[in-house]
Amino acid sequence: MKILLMGHPNVGKSVFFNRLTGSNVIESNYPGTTVDYTKGYMVLENRDIEVIDVPGTFSLEPKDKAEEVAVKMLEEEKDAIVVCVIDASKIERGLYLTLEIIEKGYPVIIALNMWDVAKDKNIEIDVKNLEKILEVPVIPTVAISGEGIKEVVSRIKEAKPVKIKNIIKNVGG
């Protein structure tokens, strides 16, 4: 089993990766910090599991080389579990990439990162309902303080592929 960290640039994937694996990947406050993938390991139920920090990408149609690396990574790791890291304060466009990944049939789990920023901006997200609609785990996180990371780890096994039809049905007319 492998875990891919995918998401837009600058949403905190590398912070997440460092927390999960104890690595020292560079984290900075600008999009495009990570331009190559890094592999690391974390222990889950006494097993070593490979985790991959991927460059940020806005969609699965790459527009630069760093995004190409990300999209290629996703294509190569056909049976990976994808942790979609979303900037909760920009949830709508984050869902765009997430839906694209779901449509490709990957098992997905969503981390609503930057939950603190979303709170500051008075954005309220009904996490329970979002889980029900998307049929995958959705967990608010603050990667820099570590909040929610444990829950993400413990729910990774709940990640599963979802049919887009179901999501359309769940959300209703």
Partner: peptide, 8 residues
């Protein structure tokens, strides 16, 4: 459209 769609 494709290029900016992901950016919201």
């Amino acid at each position: 459209r494709n290029k900016v769609a992901g950016m919201g």
